[in-house]
Amino acid sequence: MSGLSPRGAAALGLFLAAMLVLPLFANAYIVSVLVVVLFAAYFGQSWNIMTGFTGQLSLGHALYVGLGAYTAAALFVHWGLLPWVGMIAGMAVAAVAGGLIAALSFRFRVGGVYFALLTIAFSEFTRILFGHFKWVGATEGLFLPVSNLTHDDPLRLRGSPTMFYYLLLAMSLAVLGLSHLLLNRRIGYYWQAIRENEEAAASLGINVFRCKVLAMALSAALTAAGGGFLAFYDNNLYPDTAFAIGRSIEIITAPIIGGLGTLFGPILGAFLLTTLGETMTSLTSGLEIAGLKQWLYGAALLAIVALQPAGLWPWLRRLLRLEERRR
């Protein structure tokens, strides 16, 4: 993993500074769009650990979003636990679920496409299960009490979109830092070795099974933390949206577009896709043609995968010379 060049470091610093001051100048709409961007970036980065670093295609990450969201929200609604405590509980639940799914799959040598489809199956199965789970409202949904606070309360996660924006920015940066750290540690090298050639990695004495289960559990736990946060931002939860396969697809589109397995790809992808979606909405809003927005979105995806199949970040960093040459 090559480090940032001086130009890259300067660009990163500039980007961070811009993100920090943006809400001071932007209106409510822009802040709400930026929150969507940060959610996409956060989930994309969490998913990237499993699929980008370790090379195991998971198509069911909505499962962990839903588990995290429901755990945090249910603990708050029923027992009044603080959101942050609930989020940690949600992370534990998701880590166990993810680790179990990975352990079952890899113990039985389910890999590649089969693994991807298995992750969808678990996610869909859980979605239907939660539709009958009365304690969390089943299909009627679970609602968080909305209070009219005059000030932000980050401890109870009640407040303005701007508060959510800054907290989410901190969480995204934390995952970015964690990803960077892990990639440069032994476990990160193990993961990349498994991604490139699993048999070769095993023959070098890497415990492939343990590494893959660990990647999934970590990826699931991080995703669940974002899910818990999302529950307190949206204030409502339905099984059909929390565990939606559409959400799983959304989660993985940004990092693939941005550049799978890269540190900054998920962030770039999140910015591009959200901006793209919002632009399409405003472009087509006057026309009242159902489907036009999705059509343009699909066409844009097609254009990106046709022109830069490895993602936009590797292309951008070459273009702007943001990273040092590989040693």
């Binding site: 198509l59 589109t253 159902a290 489907g291 036009l292 999705q294 699909g298 066409a299 995968v305």
Partner: peptide, 29 residues
């Protein structure tokens, strides 16, 4: 794309799927 990684094939067909559904939505509501 037949020799490309799975996730690129996935994205390609996802784009095709999105365009088909959107076209039908535009044509028939």
């Amino acid at each position: 794309y037949i020799a490309r990684p799975e996730h690129e094939q996935f994205l390609l067909l996802l784009a095709v799927a999105t365009i088909i559904t959107a076209s039908l939505l535009m044509g028939f509501g």
